[in-house]
Amino acid sequence: MKFSKTEKTRKHIIESTAVLFNKKGYAGTSITDITKATNLTSGSIYGNFQNKEEVALAAFDYNLEKYRAIEHDKLDKCNSFREKLLMVVSVYHSSMNLKFPGGGCPMQNTLTDADDNYELLRKRAAKGLLNWMDEITTLLKKGKGSGEFQLTVDPGKSAAHIIALIEFGFLIASATKDRKEVDKILDIATEYIQTSILIK
């Protein structure tokens, strides 16, 4: 696919600032940070985006797409709903050695950063989180229907439980600056799936 000069510049700006926004947040990222990261002038930045918020939204979309693409790629290679559900958790384990965007979960980071101050960013991150919840809920429904999961499983509640554990893992890793802390929480999530969802 061929890109126009404008499209190439926009793509460059997004890719160059994605990790920056994910680590420093919207408020913590200045136009100077953006020009340094892209090696472009502020005029070039604003010639391609209306404002900093538009760059931040595009950077969030890029980060989230990267996260989801890695997970979806692994799920597509699973042969059962059982394997898929376990992969939802294990894909984030350090033993997988997968290259996610730097800075941690973009949804958690953006929701924390946006709060009540940047409504468009908050809505975008909330939508990503709810879509993820829907995906896992659908997976649980299918696995339950196929006889791979226990009949007592509540798909919506179980999806929320799994996501809550994963996101807490990201939170405690961010707080401690220790990637292994994520693994401890992911192990708890895996244990929950094995004991409360899967049929022995």
Rank of each mutant, 00 (worst) to 15 (best):
M1K: 11
K2M: 14
K5A: 11
K5G: 04
E7R: 04
T9D: 09
K11T: 12
H12G: 04
I13S: 02
I13Y: 03
I14F: 01
E15N: 12
S16Y: 02
S16N: 08
T17Y: 00
A18R: 03
V19T: 15
L20E: 00
N22G: 06
N22E: 07
K23F: 02
K24G: 04
Y26Q: 00
Y26I: 01
A27S: 14
G28N: 07
G28A: 09
T29I: 03
D33N: 06
I34R: 01
T35N: 00
K36F: 04
A37Q: 00
T38L: 02
S42D: 14
G43F: 01
S44K: 12
G47Q: 04
F49A: 04
K52H: 03
E53V: 13
E54T: 11
V55P: 00
L57E: 04
N63G: 12
L64K: 10
K66G: 08
R68L: 09
R68Y: 10
R68E: 10
A69Q: 11
A69V: 06
I70M: 09
E71H: 01
H72I: 13
D73K: 09
K77T: 15
N79I: 08
N79L: 12
S80N: 08
F81C: 06
K84W: 03
H93K: 15
K99P: 04
K99F: 06
F100Q: 05
G102V: 10
G104F: 01
G104T: 04
G104D: 00
G104E: 03
C105V: 11
C105H: 05
M107V: 13
N109E: 10
L111K: 12
D116H: 12
E119I: 14
L120F: 06
L121G: 04
L121M: 12
A125Q: 05
A126L: 15
K127L: 11
K127P: 03
K127A: 11
G128C: 13
G128N: 07
L130Q: 08
N131P: 03
W132V: 03
I136D: 02
T137D: 10
T138A: 15
T138Q: 14
L140M: 10
K141G: 04
K141W: 06
K141A: 10
G147R: 10
F149Q: 09
T152K: 13
T152Q: 13
T152D: 07
V153D: 09
P155T: 09
P155M: 07
G156T: 07
K157N: 09
K157T: 08
A160P: 07
H161N: 15
I162R: 04
I163M: 14
I163L: 15
A164K: 09
F168N: 15
G169N: 06
G169L: 12
G169F: 00
L171D: 13
L171N: 11
L171M: 05
L171R: 05
A173I: 04
S174D: 14
A175S: 07
T176K: 13
T176Y: 08
D183I: 11
K184P: 05
L186H: 07
A189D: 06
Q194L: 09
I197C: 07
I199H: 08
